[in-house]
């Protein structure tokens, strides 16, 4: 076994067992769950005539400025007026693909981040816009020396990916780490976080962890 690793043989969750957004509640994703219980096999066959009152006709006299309803390309997105709030699953989807610093595995598949341990606290008063995202991380073993790095990685990821109206709070889940208090202090201290991010080596590690999150396919 590789002695350099704190936990050389962690439990791995199979990708198909990870929490995903149920298509049912998802009226935006391009593979939206269908109300008819089918998979959309016949979509290409059922003619446009049957789906909307009229097909796209470039000559049907003056088109409305907002031609959304008739252009098929935007139908995947649902109604633009419906607001889709940022929710816990979305936070999970942002941080689950972060790679572990010592395994070629994601934090999601190692159960370091878990959906039930993500909470969004709405603004305290109507006057405030600031919501808080609280993420509790579970190191794979209680003496994991990389807990701080993982915490920082999660923090950096969320700071880059969430709009500024969110405050970010990353901690070690209670009872899962031997020096949780110290780690939490470090993760919670703005100045210490900022100082840590000035450290080139550390930032290099974190950048490597975040590498796999945003693959832009062409």
């Amino acid at each position: 076994m590789d002695p350099d690793k704190d936990n050389a043989n962690p439990t791995i969750i199979n990708p198909s067992d990870l929490p995903t957004r149920r298509r049912q509640s998802d009226n935006i994703s391009s593979i939206k769950r269908r109300t008819d219980g089918g998979t959309g096999l016949f979509d290409g066959l059922i003619p446009a005539i049957a789906r909307s009152s009229h097909a796209y006709d470039p000559f049907a006299a003056p088109l409305p400025v907002d031609s959304d309803a008739s252009s098929p390309s935007s139908s995947d997105f649902g109604d633009d007026d419906v607001l889709e709030e940022i929710d816990e699953q979305e936070i999970y989807d942002l941080i689950a693909p972060i790679s572990d610093p010592e395994h070629p595995l994601t934090l999601g598949s190692l159960a370091v981040v878990n959906l039930p341990d993500i909470h969004i606290v709405p603004p305290a008063s109507t006057a405030s816009r600031i919501s808080t995202v609280r993420v509790l991380i579970t190191p794979t073993i209680t003496h994991c020396s990389l807990a701080t790095v993982i915490g920082l990685g999660v923090r950096v990821r969320l700071e880059q990916a969430l709009p500024p109206r969110f405050r970010i709070d990353v901690r070690i889940k209670e009872g899962t780490h031997s020096t949780a208090d110290q780690v939490n202090k470090q993760l919670g201290d703005k100045e210490r976080v900022a100082a840590a991010l000035e450290n080139g080596t550390l930032m290099g590690v974190i950048r490597k962890m975040l590498e796999g999150c945003d693959n832009v396919n062409e």
Partner: peptide, 14 residues
């Protein structure tokens, strides 16, 4: 407003 747009925004910004 739309989740699918936000996902692209995150990718683009990073």
């Amino acid at each position: 407003r739309k989740r699918a747009v936000r996902i692209e925004a995150v990718k683009c910004r990073s």
